[in-house]
Design a protein around this nucleic acid. Sequence first.
DNA 1: CGAATAAGTCTACAAGTGTATACCTGAAGG
DNA 2: CCTTCAGGTATACACTTGTAGACTTATTCG
Lengths: 209, 209
Amino acid sequence: MPAAKPANAKKQAALRPRNAAATREAILKSARKAFAAHGYDGAGLREIAAEAGVTAMLVNRYFGSKEQLFEEVIDHTMAGASVIREGIGDLPNLGDYLAAGLLATTSPDAAPLDGSLMMIRSASTANPRVAEIGRRQIEKRHLKTLAAALKGEHAAERAALILSLIAGVQVMRQMIGLSALAKTPPATLHKLLAPVIQKLANPPIRPPR
Amino acid sequence: MPAAKPANAKKQAALRPRNAAATREAILKSARKAFAAHGYDGAGLREIAAEAGVTAMLVNRYFGSKEQLFEEVIDHTMAGASVIREGIGDLPNLGDYLAAGLLATTSPDAAPLDGSLMMIRSASTANPRVAEIGRRQIEKRHLKTLAAALKGEHAAERAALILSLIAGVQVMRQMIGLSALAKTPPATLHKLLAPVIQKLANPPIRPPR
DNA sequence: CGAATAAGTCTACAAGTGTATACCTGAAGG
DNA sequence: CCTTCAGGTATACACTTGTAGACTTATTCG
């Protein structure tokens, strides 16, 4: 009775004309956004795929699995332009520089460009491999670079504390939404934050004996 | 023919002899542990129930829903003995005190007694009501108390930054497992950390004009 | 114009989630 | 003994998740 299948109407047909590279990039971008917003476990493949204008299965066809997708995403993100980069050891005011960078990228609800928030959001995943991926990235990209830029004793520990402070501010501003940080003008926060970071960046004073 | 149902063998029959109050407490304890370890979304009701020796449905019968359970758990946790408590404004060395408290409760993989980590782990939940619950708890319990203990300008902002630093160290030590923080002896970290916290606790110096 | 192949989708499945309904069970009181 | 009822369990449902296999479509090349 029904005259053949009416060739079911497809939506958004020719939006992207079958370009593999472009599709891959779209998926990466979408995944980055989703992972940053909801963490590894919280971001669904269907959600990522929809935002990229494709099907969930295509994501797996391109990246193998959600786990591998995450690995590639976090690698791209951490490798991209970060506030913590090579050569920051030569800056005169590391405290000012880092505080400015933190407050610039950390508008209360903007997308976190930095990978650290993405990692923190993903850190309590049930998948231990994913947690390990993130740990290694932070150690390799951020800690190592920053520690190399510091002089004096306990450089690694001081670098780790600076990272902790930065991460903590990001967490409280963007994840928790603490009003005292979210609503205060960046300039005010900068004045409070920069000297503290600088104090950690400076070589610790040795007690005179 | 079949002589009635053979009264299917039950395991762990008389472990807890049907005590409502004790069961409630057991569920709370289990839930606290699970939420702290995996966050709100990551902790399953069946997992919580199993650890408490009951069924998932009993949890809902006692607490109404997972959401209400979380609310009660985080309220108990934040209200319990915390490092940040009333009267800390009278301490001579707030930096020392807070650093000691942080490093004591923050052994790399121990259960976080403080509710803040539980909140951070739960902050990226899909449930907005849950996120709001946690935000309010941190503002009310921690920020308010600490800000009241500080003197000088921008007390709220400085308190928020101290909380951020503490939270950041917790995150990097317990969630990420950053080696420089996890493996370094607490005494060393204390020496680096205490003066930084103290610097934030002291009234900011006004630039002489 | 085909044919070949890359690009993409459909359907399905097994596992896991929170929760509602109906059921069972053990101890206390008559 | 039997009833009663709080304390607890079993079953089921509707939904979501990551992923596998078969299928379809568009593009490019001969």
